[in-house]
């Protein structure tokens, strides 16, 4: 029931956006300037190519020239919420006074100069947001199917998707969450499992050619780290706060120094979570893209073959990294929560 509903929603959403987009590309076909493509053929800017693949974009370009338009949603103090298809801003077009300057939507005046007084807040369904939605729907479909598997095979051996994911779920439960959070681990299991599979699925989706680099986006990793940060500080017990406010065994005159150190420590945890995931995934993408870029740079069969081998090997390494980083993020989140909710301990 839920699956069908979500599926219908997602499907109609993309069909709707796609149809809208088609209309506009057809309407504005005459305005296309082939300069862009000519330039691309003349010289190959590897840095720009890599950044283009790593960063977010309005609309989803699967391959060069094949672009799925996505809705742009803007909030400006003077006009309120506005929504239109990203295809309207393709090829440097101006729509409704907006232009896409390197994936930043800016207001321009009649003369075509950007208006510095207006700062549109961009809530667009970008490539990353679309990917985020797809991953969420995918996760819901997968795990409701697994749940159905448990209902259907009650008292029997697991089957299919259920048996594929059960060892992963039990590993997260028994090896990551249980030993690090302690006896009250069950309350945190849904969050930890969601976190792990969300990161894993998005890491793997990010490795798919043409897909978004979601977990390599600092906004996403920052948000995930903040969730853990908030849980840690909402659930923290007295012992955790006392450790920061009055570190045991520290003379009074040294305490202010410790407050600074402890505060940095508190902030370093989410920062390290944010940067670790972001840097690992983005770094991996940069390496793979660099190897692919070398092929285009040298345009030689020999180099191409050699680099292809290295690139393929790196892709396999990145699949490993996708699992490792999802595991580490979950493990560290569990450890942070575990130390925060620990009752008073004497080993100081």
């Amino acid at each position: 029931m839920l699956k069908k509903l979500l599926f219908t929603f997602a499907f109609s959403f993309f069909v709707f956006v796609g149809l809208k987009a088609q209309e506009h590309t057809e309407a504005g076909h005459g305005e296309i300037t082939p300069v862009h493509e000519l330039e691309a053929e003349e010289h190959f800017d590897m840095g720009a190519m890599i950044m283009h693949h790593i960063l977010d974009e309005h609309g989803w370009e699967f391959a060069h020239g094949v672009k799925l338009p996505l809705p742009i949603i803007l909030y400006t103090s003077d006009r309120g919420l506005e929504m239109f298809s990203s295809s309207k801003l393709d090829y440097g077009n101006t729509y409704n006074g907006y232009q896409n300057h390197h994936e930043h939507i800016v207001r321009v005046n009649e003369a075509g100069v950007s208006d510095e007084n207006v700062h549109p807040i961009d809530f667009s369904i970008t490539k990353n947001v679309a990917s985020l939605l797809i991953s969420a729907i995918l996760l819901i479909l997968i795990f409701t199917a697994v749940n159905r598997g448990y209902k259907r095979n009650k008292g029997k051996a697991p089957k299919g998707l259920q048996s594929l994911l059960e060892p992963v779920i039990t590993t997260i439960k028994d090896e990551v969450v249980k030993p690090n959070i302690g006896p009250k681990y069950e309350a945190y299991l849904p969050y930890m499992l969601t976190l792990f599979f969300f990161i894993l699925v998005n890491n793997l989706m990010g490795l798919t050619p043409g897909a978004a680099n979601l977990t390599g986006n600092i906004a996403v990793t920052l948000t995930l780290a903040l969730f853990t940060f908030i849980i840690v500080h909402v659930k923290a017990k007295k012992a955790y706060w006392m450790h920061i406010v009055a570190p045991p065994g520290v003379p009074g005159w040294l305490k202010p120094l410790f407050w600074i150190i402890e505060s940095i420590g508190v902030l370093m945890k989410p920062a390290s979570l944010t940067i670790r995931l972001f840097a690992n995934i983005t770094g991996g993408h940069i390496i793979i893209l660099s190897f692919i870029g070398i092929i285009f740079l040298f345009k030689s069969w020999g180099v191409g073959a050699g680099v292809w081998g290295i690139g393929a090997f790196m892709s396999l390494i990145e699949i490993l990294v996708a699992f490792i980083q999802a595991y580490i993020f979950t493990l560290l989140s569990s450890m942070y929560i575990g130390t925060a909710i620990e009752e008073h301990h004497d080993h100081h």
């Binding site: 960063l55 977010d56 970008t126 849904p190 948000t223």
Partner: peptide, 21 residues
């Protein structure tokens, strides 16, 4: 650009992740 988190994506990430959760 790589290191500046976008407000829009943070908003959608919070919304979608919480819904997913």
């Amino acid at each position: 650009e790589l290191l500046t988190p976008g407000i829009g994506l943070i908003f959608w990430q919070i919304l979608i992740f919480l819904t997913l959760f």
